[in-house]
C-alpha cells in the first residue's frame, strides 16, 4: 500500500504525477525534452539509459515500463535483456556501451563517474551533448526511481499487460499529461 493516499487506478509514477500535478509539470517537461526531444541519440538509445538506471536502482515499475518502451522503439526484446546482464555483450555500438557505463556510474553516485569513463565514450565519438544528456537522463531516473519506490506505490504484475499498454502510451504520446486525463483507465 502506498505511504499516502493515491488514485487507485494509477499505479507507480502515474498516480504520483496526478496526485501532485504542479510538481509533475516540470518533471514531465524535462523528461519529454530529454527522451523525446531532438537528439543525436535515438529515442531507443535514450530509453535504454532510462532502463539500465531503473534496473540497477531495483525499481521494478520503472524498469518494466521503460523496457516495454525500449522494446517497442527497437522492434525487438533481446538488446534490453542482454544489457541488464552485461553491457559489453550488447549488439550495439561501442559508443552506446560507453554511455550506458557512464549512466551506470551515475546510478551509484555522481562522484563515481571517472575521467576515464568519459574519455572512453569520447574516444568512440560521443559528443559533449551526448555525455551531458546521458548523465542528466541517468540522474533524472535516480529521481523517478526514488519517488516511485519511496512512496511505496503499487507495482502491477508484469503478466498483467499493464506495462505493454504504458510502453505504447509513452512511445505514441510521449511524457506529457494526456489532454483528457486518465479517468478512462478507471475499472468500471
Amino acid at each position: 500500500m502506498p505511504h499516502i493516499s493515491l488514485p487507485e487506478h494509477l499505479p507507480g509514477i502515474t498516480g504520483l504525477l496526478e496526485y501532485s500535478q504542479e510538481t509533475a509539470q516540470p518533471i514531465r517537461d524535462l523528461t519529454q525534452l530529454l527522451l523525446r526531444g531532438d537528439n543525436t541519440l535515438s529515442q531507443g538509445e535514450r530509453e535504454l539509459i532510462a532502463t539500465i538506471v531503473s534496473y540497477r536502482n531495483g525499481c521494478v515499475f520503472c524498469t518494466n515500463a521503460h523496457t516495454a518502451a525500449t522494446d517497442l522503439l527497437l522492434g525487438e526484446t533481446e538488446t534490453c535483456e542482454i544489457m541488464k546482464q552485461d553491457i559489453d555483450q550488447m549488439p550495439v555500438s561501442d559508443k552506446l556501451k560507453a554511455l550506458l557505463k557512464i549512466a551506470s556510474l551515475v546510478q551509484i553516485n555522481g562522484k563515481a563517474v571517472t575521467p576515464e569513463s568519459v574519455e572512453l565514450a569520447k574516444s568512440f565519438g560521443a559528443t559533449d551533448a551526448e555525455i551531458h544528456d546521458t548523465v542528466l537522463i541517468a540522474a533524472l531516473f535516480c529521481l523517478y526511481n526514488r519517488y516511485v519506490d519511496g512512496m511505496a506505490t503499487f507495482t502491477p504484475d508484469p503478466q498483467s499487460g499493464f506495462y505493454q499498454q504504458l510502453g505504447e502510451r509513452i512511445v505514441n504520446h510521449g511524457y506529457q499529461r494526456l489532454p483528457q486525463g486518465y479517468d478512462h483507465l478507471k475499472k468500471s
Binding site: 551515475v106 555522481g110 540522474a139 535516480c142 529521481l143 519511496g150
Partner: peptide, 16 residues
C-alpha cells in the same frame, strides 16, 4: 520528492 530531486541535482553536478 525534494530528496529525490536532490539525488538528481547532485548527480548532475558531480557526474559531469
Amino acid at each position: 520528492l525534494i530528496a529525490a530531486a536532490f539525488c538528481l541535482f547532485n548527480r548532475y553536478v558531480d557526474g559531469l
